[in-house]
Design a protein around this nucleic acid. Sequence first.
RNA 1: GCCCCGUUCGUCUAUCGGUUAGGACACAAGAUUUUCAUUCUUGUAAGAGGGGUUCGACUCCCCUACGGGGUACCA
Length: 506
Amino acid sequence: MSPVRVRFAPSPTGALHIGGIRTALYNYLFARQQGGTFIVRVEDTDQARFVPGAENYILRSLEWVGLIPEEGPEQGGPYGPYRQSERKEIYMDYARKLVEAGRAYYAFDTPEELEAMRQRLATPENPMPRYDFLSRMGMKNSLTLTAEEMAAMRSNGVPEVIRLKVPEGEKVKITDLIRGEVEFATQELDDKVLMKSDGMPTYHMANVIDDRLMRISHVIRGEEWLSSTAHHVLLYRYFGWEEEMPQFAHLPLILKPEGNGKLSKRDGAKFGFPVFPMDWKPEEGEHFEGFRETGFLPEALINFLVMLGWNPGTDQEIFNLEELIQAFSIGKIVKSGARFDYQKAKWFNAHYIQNLKPSEAVSLIQEEFLKHNRSVLSKQAADIFDMYRERVTLLPEFYSSGLFVVQAPDAVDPDFRSKKWKREWNAAFLDLADQLSCTDPFEKESLEPMFKNFMQTHGLKMGEFLPAIRVMVSGTPMGPDVYLMLKAIGASEAASRIRRGLEMLA
RNA sequence: GCCCCGUUCGUCUAUCGGUUAGGACACAAGAUUUUCAUUCUUGUAAGAGGGGUUCGACUCCCCUACGGGGUACCA
């Protein structure tokens, strides 16, 4: 068996959405598990759709979720370069060999002529005629033109491409690791363009050549490629590589949460959730929010994505990367498309937040505050984590919930003020503030008996007293344990907030 | 239109001919909690339809329906 080498091959035509992340993840897991190599190859053969910054975005996104390639445009490797635009010369040689072998040909049809052919041949039964064995002899190509005619076209600068000469009446069988045997009849296949008129290869050409040259053993990619795999097999065959051709695994697609079709970048805005790993802010065009900025942990995103279309066959749902490497198998990838479920994604995130190490949580919370130009001491961040670890779904909630620790509320809950607060409690609470300011140590153990005593002497119930304290400390009657809240702000601050709160409640 | 792939609770899925069709999210109820949340317990909820094959089909085969992908000098 040749060594396992897999590649993730994104095209820098925009931000990579989570479907791409999932494809990269499955490739990565397979490589790690098999002791193989995970490669990133940038497929930038479309000059017209090239988006500046997209490649960097993709690479940084992979980095954020922890999928670092061993070989790629940034780390190099023995089979580089790993950007197809930098491999441009390679492809034309191979394409010419195919022409010499009679398996491909030059074509000189303009876009207008192609359109005219489709118009001319279209019938109600066949609305999309192809450039294929049926139509190619009526077109301008090296099969129909004389050498003189071709020379004339070349000197006149007529655009020239190389097309694959797909035979008639043959079968192409593919063994897909996920779907099993899939068969295509070659008369259904068109004469795909291999080399474009700008000298760049198409996806099909570059893909086959590079997978071969980079010794790729398994091609794990989205289902949208299944149909064109027949063309790829033909290429391997004509180059004489069919015996050592990589194995294929075509992944099910991620579908919209509701309605029809696959998940698209617009769905994020439409349904109110991210579809990109990180914020995507191109120089022109729309901006999109990412999972990272929404407050997801990369581990949670990975765990959510891996379960969208794969399962271990057991009831276990929570996996870290190491466990996934152990448990993963291509055979357990599901065949049908999976709907994106944002609720489930949030559930995973809440789980990972709860299980954060305190030290990690502290720095994440400090980062959240920094985004609002505020700082919290690590002691304060630790207190915030204690109070909210089980109540937070998205990281930014640590800021909105925990802000009271560093900033006194400037208003009190109006509902509480009008419906629950009794003015006759005023003097008692003022008294409590004085007691509080000289309480030491300022812990639940010392506070609790004192509060019990206070409630008893003033005839207050827990359900009246504790919400009142919470309102004075944080502005709202609901929230975490009051003792933790008080401890987080300290004795003197607690006393002053009660005094201030009483003014606002009056 | 044609080609290819698919179809189990609302959603993600388990089951690889014999199960009370299991788990998770969501939802509902109850318990715990000073409140909210967490946590725990319980509950509602599924094999697209029709034919076969078989002693026996969710599972295998065929047809239909539906969904997805492809049908570009885009990937």
